[in-house]
Amino acid sequence: MKILKVENLTKGFKNGKKENLVLNSINFEVNEGEIFTILGPNGEGKTTLIKLMTKLLNPSKGNIYYQGKNIAKIGEKYYKEIGCVLEGNRNTYWFLSAMENILYFGRLYGLKDDYIVEKGTELLEFFGLINDKDKKVGQFSLGMQQKLSIIISLIHKPRILFLDEPTLGLDVVSKIDIIEMLKYLTKTEGVTIILTSHQMDVIEKIADRVMLLKDSRIHFLDTIDKLKDMYSKSKYLIKIEGYFDEKDLYKYLIDVSIVNHTKNNGFTEVEFYNDNYSLQQNFLKSMLNDGIIITEFKKVESDLEEIMYMFLKNREGNEGNV
């Protein structure tokens, strides 16, 4: 079931007489209960899109529908259905304690104090902050502040949770904690999560679907596996005895794109992109003929970061050719 639908959404910001188009006629839908990730280089409109979907910005054109209703016409009631944590660590009041923050924002949702304390305690326990509930937020670490912001955004049981770079600047432990907790929330509470992130490791672990924004448009929208299938087919590793510089290897590795080259423990390892079987046969033969000892040759899976890099590089190349 679709919970959110974005239709012909366009947003531009005027700079004098010129309009800088950040999003240009984009269309997509978000399924209920999924973790939907928005990816893209800096300045490509990820945060703008989050702000449009949360009505912090008005679109230049187009509409956004929540369960079939145009959000522009729902009014403030829309905020009872969504929760949002924006980028940065300033979503809470530093002079209030964790529980005082939860109480303050819970009351703004029109919730009863008893309920806020009960649900707040449950969430504080879930996020491992129960022992810090009376501590001022000013004394919290970045990870604790981020967890508290998420707790506050969940206090009214929203159907959609918007998270803008939720794990940015966090240590590994906090990052993994938050990822695991968000995954658990979608499973147990059915919360739909729409998040932006630069961190590929986070996206890889959490996302059901990925949307890539670039040049004001959607360049890819599907599952991570599809993205990987499209771009990880052609990555190979070759391990040879001895030390070889990259320029020495180009003699053999014609028409391939080397992505990694290391020399270690008497071996040289090269990772490259190429899917041409006959070409591979040729350069392997040439190497063997020249007495190079190949100890390993295998296809390897790319991580998401490499895939994104290739994806964006290919796009730039294609655009340049047009």
């Binding site: 300033r90 009041y93 029109g110 506050i152």
Partner: peptide, 14 residues
């Protein structure tokens, strides 16, 4: 300045 203004705008209060 504190960065909490957006959070107020995201609440169901006019």
């Amino acid at each position: 300045q504190a960065g909490t203004f957006e959070q107020l705008l995201l609440k169901p209060v006019n």
